[in-house]
């Protein structure tokens, strides 16, 4: 598999309430291992996946949020968050556990247009 494609993962769901965020992260890590061009997008409730300070002990589930910090080690550095999604939730980039690029909605739309494969879970 020598061809490199642009893979975008669009995360629009909050973590913990459903398993989508966790299983999406599992695909992201595998995709990076295939040397593809990977971007992650966090939109709507998906931005909650990146909220600092998640403590899941009380709900007896695995806290997978530290894994977002490990993405850099897999050469996944393109993390995008939509500005209005953050603002609508009273959050700013400082509330997030990783460094992200905050995009205006039109910039986000343009970025989506440029992808080869868009995966959403």
């Amino acid at each position: 598999m020598s061809d490199i494609k642009k893979f975008m993962f669009v995360n629009r769901k909050a973590p913990h309430g459903t398993i989508y965020a966790l299983e999406s992260l599992e695909v992201v890590l595998i995709t990076a291992a295939f040397d593809q061009d990977v971007s992650l997008v966090f939109l709507d409730d998906g931005v909650y996946q990146l909220k600092k300070g998640q403590q899941t002990k009380g709900i007896a589930t695995k806290n997978f949020s530290p894994a977002y910090r490990a993405l850099e080690g897999y050469d996944i550095e393109k993390l995008y968050v939509e500005k209005e999604s953050l603002e609508a939730r009273g959050l700013s980039a400082a509330d997030l556990l990783v460094d992200v690029t905050v995009l205006e909605r039109a910039e986000m739309g343009e970025l989506m247009d440029q992808q080869d494969v868009v995966l959403s879970f």
């Binding site: 629009r12 939109l43 709507d44 939509e82 909605r105 039109a106 343009e110």
Partner: peptide, 14 residues
């Protein structure tokens, strides 16, 4: 659900 709203907000055309 906000899926359609979000699409109309972010996507520019298509």
């Amino acid at each position: 659900n906000s899926a359609l709203d979000s699409c109309l907000r972010v996507a520019q055309a298509g």
